[in-house]
Write a protein that binds this DNA or RNA. Structure first.
Lengths: 186, 205
DNA sequence: GCTTTAAAAAGTAACGT
DNA sequence: ACGTTACTTTCAAAAGC
């Protein structure tokens, strides 16, 4: 049988950083092609990179949030593209701004169908949220690592809230062993 | 001092008025839904607990009152869907759902997922279907749920499909539209659940 | 609490044809 | 009865209401 850990796939990485300089978003919006800026709707300017594909939110303070990257390397690459674009606009950008990964969204497959009703009882109703009338996934919050897992009847799951790729692996390990000791896997 | 005293009375009165309003709203909605008095009483207890635990801060009184009623119906074994609840509340479905999940977690209500069979008697009686159809629908739900088909599916859609299937098997056919209307789901959902259920039951028809 | 961004999971819903 | 699009849930950061 396939180790569920091998099925883990990073779907989205969110990171924040800052260029250490305040920005006039109105002028950045004018000079930066493809920039979406509507301060009435949201204070951040939206800039999308094509390769790697991502969306950056640029703020007046110079702080930047990048989402949509498929790996931590991609999120760095995307942000460097944004840094260079800003430099092209003669904006001073620190040489190597600190980039902090804030959230990693992962998907995985346990390889077996899950009886979510039994799992809800087994894990303890006070530890989970399962409202199939509102959402098909069972929400399971782990303490270590501190992540949130969404379990589905198909055996597939989503893990979010982690800051390191290893968090997802540890989470999958814990979930698998929890379900195994409850006799709810296979 | 007099000002403080007056303010205390004012807040006490306001709190009293809010509680009275919440309880009258629970009563009004419960009447509209036609649920027994026990359900209103449990809902009132849940609301008072939410009030005591200060869970209403940042939320509307109506939202918490409606969610308390939704939780109460489920606890008493006569669930109403969020769709049905929202029809008698001025709070929208999405808000009722999220408020319910919040108070349920905070108060440790430990709500079990709704058993689709709980919807069978009411839906069948609205459709004027016989006891035989009800039994058959319950059997279909029981059997297919054991085979794992229920995971992640909405209880109303699941019950609706089983009722539709049972009505066919018992020669008391109701159309997907008729069943969909009483269960407040789409025909598409009934079709999808129905196909899975009859396949799992090994029914050819 | 809200606003915006991205992404997966699976179910449900609302369109158009 | 299809197909497409879109909404539900989870997460985090940003600035400001």
């Amino acid at each position: 049988m396939t180790d569920p850990k091998e099925t883990i796939n990073i779907e989205n990485v969110v990171a924040s950083t800052g260029i250490g300089q305040e920005l006039d978003l109105q002028s950045v919006a004018m000079d930066l092609e493809g920039a979406d800026y509507d301060p009435e709707q949201f204070p951040g300017l939206v800039y999308r990179t094509q390769d790697p594909k991502s969306a950056a939110l640029i703020f007046r303070s110079g702080k930047i949030v990048c989402t949509g990257a498929k790996s931590t390397d991609d999120v760095h690459e995307s942000l460097h593209i944004v840094f260079d674009k800003l430099r092209d606009l003669s904006i001073q950008v620190e040489e190597e701004p600190e980039i902090v990964v804030q959230n990693i969204v992962t998907s995985a497959d346990l390889g077996r169908q899950l009886n979510l009703n039994a799992i809800a009882i087994g894990l303890g109703l006070e530890n989970i949220e399962y409202e199939p009338e509102q959402f098909p996934g069972l929400v399971y919050r782990l303490d270590e690592p501190e992540v949130v897992a969404l379990l589905f009847g198909s055996g597939k799951l989503v893990i979010t809230g982690g800051k390191q790729p290893e968090d997802a692996e540890h989470a999958v390990d814990k979930i698998v062993s929890r379900l195994e000791e409850l006799g709810l896997l296979e | 001092r007099l000002r403080k005293w007056q303010e205390r009375i004012r807040t006490k009165d306001a709190g009293e008025r809010n509680l009275q309003f919440a309880l009258s709203e629970i009563d009004r909605m419960a009447s509209a839904l036609g649920v027994p008095r026990s359900v209103r009483e449990v809902a009132s207890v849940i609301y008072r607990r939410a009030l005591k635990e200060d869970l209403i801060r940042g939320r509307s009184i109506e939202g918490v009152a409606t969610s308390a009623l939704y939780a109460s119906c489920r606890k008493e074994g006569i669930p109403r869907s969020l769709e049905e609840i929202s029809e008698v509340s001025r709070v929208e479905r999405k808000e009722i759902g999220r408020t319910y999940r919040y108070i349920s977690q905070e108060l440790g209500l430990e709500m079990k997922p709704v058993d689709p069979k709980k919807y069978v008697p009411r839906f069948c009686s609205e459709l004027e279907l016989s006891e035989e159809v009800q039994s058959k629908a319950n059997e279909i739900i029981e059997t297919t749920a054991e085979k794992g088909l229920l995971s992640g599916k909405s209880p109303t859609g699941y019950a609706a499909a089983a009722i539709y299937a049972a009505s066919l098997l018992c020669n008391e056919k109701k159309t997907q539209r008729e069943v969909a209307d009483v269960a407040q789901v789409t025909e598409v959902t009934i079709r999808n659940r129905y196909q899975e259920q009859i396949e799992a039951m090994g029914i050819h028809n």
